[in-house]
Computed example of a mutant assay.
Amino acid sequence: MNRWIAGVLCLTLMSGMAHAGEMLTVLLPARGEPVPVADLAIEAYGRYQMVYRDAPFQPHFLSMRPFQCLAAPPKLQCHLPYPYANDRRITEEDLGDLEYDLLFLVKQADEFGIDFWNGRYYRLRREGDTIVGEAQAVDMNILASKPEAGDTRPIGDGDLTALGMAETPFPRLRIVAAEAK
């Protein structure tokens, strides 16, 4: 199937899911209220833009660099922007680029610095009109070296470890149509 046809098909499928392409990304704690963290706009040919909200994040300077973190006492969950090229394109079957826009690190709130081995990767899948994700543990030191040319997704299934609900501040996420909040 040529790229144009695939793009039109993806746009048709995703626009039905996203009600004009506007979606809301919400992190779900094990207990407590869902936390809206980002707005997602799906555009033509499956291209998307994700914009993180300022609130509820708090700025923290950890390990000599700035992070935007969510308080989940006694822990913080901090967004880790993917430092390499990302096409920011999704299809009905492939949400991988979006997974790389949802990278986080977790730390104890009272600890100094941040450990990149304590990463969170949300494995995404579709459930009807919603995208859902389960947090997986991953050593983000994988990202210390630039991936080989053409390898835009260096984190593989073998790098991920399933987590229980109590092992991470936000074990799940949901991406829903903006009106559905």
Rank of each mutant, 00 (worst) to 15 (best):
H19M: 11
D94W: 06
L102M: 12
A38M: 04
D54E: 12
P34H: 09
V37C: 06
P36V: 03
R47Y: 15
Y84R: 03
C69D: 03
M64A: 05
P56T: 07
H60Q: 13
Q58R: 12
D94Q: 03
R65Q: 03
L103H: 03
H79K: 10
A30F: 13
A71Y: 04
D87N: 06
L24K: 15
L98E: 02
L103K: 02
P66N: 03
P59Q: 06
P36K: 04
E92Q: 09
V51W: 07
R88K: 15
Q49F: 10
I42N: 05
L76G: 04
S63Y: 01
Y84I: 00
V35H: 04
S15Y: 13
E33T: 15
L95R: 09
L62C: 00
F61Q: 01
Y84G: 02
D87T: 03
F67K: 00
Y52A: 03
R47C: 14
F61Y: 07
Y45R: 13
R47E: 13
L95D: 07
S15G: 09
M23K: 12
P56V: 07
L80C: 06
F67V: 00
G32L: 13
H60D: 08
P74M: 11
R88C: 08
A18K: 07
G96T: 08
D54W: 05
A71M: 10
P66L: 02
I90M: 02
P73K: 11
N86Q: 04
L62D: 00
Q49T: 15
M17A: 13
M64K: 07
R89T: 12
P66F: 05
Y45L: 14
M14H: 11
V51I: 14
M64Q: 07
S63K: 02
A85L: 03
T91V: 08
P66H: 04
M23G: 09
A30Y: 13
G96C: 05
K75R: 15
V35T: 10
V37Q: 01
T25A: 13
Y100D: 01
D94N: 10
D94S: 01
P56E: 09
T25V: 15
H79C: 05
Y52C: 04
R65K: 05
Y45H: 14
E99W: 11
Q68S: 13
P29H: 14
D97R: 01
R53M: 09
P83Y: 07
H60N: 10
S63V: 02
P83Q: 08
P66W: 01
D54H: 10
A85S: 03
E43W: 08
L95V: 10
A72S: 14
Q68F: 05
P34E: 07
H60A: 12
L28Y: 10
H19N: 12
Y84H: 08
P81F: 04
